[in-house]
C-alpha cells in the first residue's frame, strides 16, 4: 500500500471520467430524472417521503455496481491490469484508488439528487443531511466492491452487464421496498437479512423517520461498511499477479 500510487490511481480514474462527459451526465442525470418521475407517479407527499430516501440509497449502489464491473473488466481484458501487476502497484492501491474516485463521484451524484428532492420535489427528511450523504456514499462503495468482485466472473462486457440484474434485482426485491420486511415469509426474511442492500434501505428509512441517529441506523451503517470490506477483500483475491 502506497499513498502516492493510490492517489495517482484515483486521479487517473477521474481523468478517464472527465474525458467521458456522457457517462458523467448519465450518472448524475438518470437518478435525478427517476426521482422526479417517482415524485409525480406517486403524487402523494407522505408516500414520497417514505420511498424517496430509500431510492437515494439504491441509486448510487446500482450505478457504481455497473460502472465498476465494466471498468474493472476493461482493465482485465485491455491488458492494463496485467501491465499494472508487473509494476510496484499493490492490489490495495488499485482498490482504494477506485474506492476514492467512485466515492467522490457518488458524493456528487447524491448531493445533486438530494438537492433536487429536498427543494423542488419537497422531500422531508427527518434526520441530518450529512448522515444521508454518508450512508449514500457507503452504499455506493458497497456497489463498487460487489461490482469489482462480480467482474472476476465475467469474460465479456455482455456478461458483466447481465450481472447487474443477477446481483442487484434479488436484493432490490428482498430489501423491503417492494414488500415490507416483516410481511415476508420467514425464509425470505432470512435471505433478506443476509443481503447488504436490506441494511442500506433500512438505514435510509431510519433517516427518513427519525430526527436522531438511532441505534438501528448505527448498526445498519456498520453492516454496510463491513459488507463493503468483505466484498473488497474477496475482490482483491480475484486480482492475480499470475494468470494461466
Amino acid at each position: 500500500m502506497n499513498v502516492r500510487i493510490t492517489l495517482a490511481t484515483t486521479r487517473r480514474i477521474l481523468s478517464q471520467l472527465r474525458h467521458d462527459h456522457r457517462t458523467v451526465g448519465l450518472l448524475i442525470g438518470v437518478p435525478s430524472l427517476l426521482m422526479i418521475l417517482l415524485r409525480y407517479v406517486i403524487d402523494n407527499e407522505i408516500a414520497f417521503d417514505r420511498f424517496g430516501p430509500m431510492l437515494l440509497g439504491i441509486f448510487p449502489f446500482i450505478v457504481m455496481f455497473i460502472v465498476t464491473s465494466v471498468g474493472t473488466l476493461r482493465e482485465r481484458t485491455g491488458g492494463t491490469l496485467e501491465r499494472l501487476m508487473t509494476t510496484p502497484l499493490g492490489k490495495l492501491d488499485l482498490l482504494l484508488g477506485y474506492a476514492l474516485a467512485f466515492g467522490l463521484l457518488a458524493l456528487v451524484q447524491v448531493a445533486v439528487v438530494a438537492t433536487i428532492s429536498m427543494t423542488w420535489l419537497g422531500l422531508d427528511l427527518a434526520g441530518p443531511v450529512w448522515v444521508l450523504l454518508l450512508v449514500a456514499v457507503l452504499d455506493a462503495l458497497l456497489g463498487m466492491a460487489l461490482g469489482l468482485f462480480a467482474s472476476a466472473f465475467a469474460r465479456t462486457e455482455f456478461q458483466a452487464v447481465q450481472f447487474m440484474p443477477a446481483f442487484v434485482l434479488p436484493q432490490a426485491l428482498l430489501c423491503g421496498i417492494v414488500v415490507p420486511h416483516d410481511q415476508m415469509a420467514t425464509w425470505l426474511q432470512w435471505i433478506s437479512n443476509a443481503l447488504p442492500l436490506t441494511y442500506a434501505v433500512e438505514a435510509m428509512q431510519q433517516l427518513a423517520g427519525n430526527t436522531d441517529i438511532t441505534v438501528t441506523l448505527l448498526r445498519d451503517t456498520v453492516v454496510i461498511a463491513g459488507s463493503t470490506i468483505l466484498a473488497l477483500t474477496l475482490g482483491a483475491a480475484t486480482l492475480r499477479r499470475r494468470t494461466p
Binding site: 487517473r12 478517464q16 467521458d20 485491455g78 491488458g79 492494463t80 496485467e82 501491465r83 508487473t86
Partner: peptide, 15 residues
Amino acid sequence: LVGYSTQNPAIYKDL
C-alpha cells in the same frame, strides 16, 4: 527494474 510492453497495447484508450 523490468519494463514490459504487451503485444496488444495496454494503455487507457480514454486518456
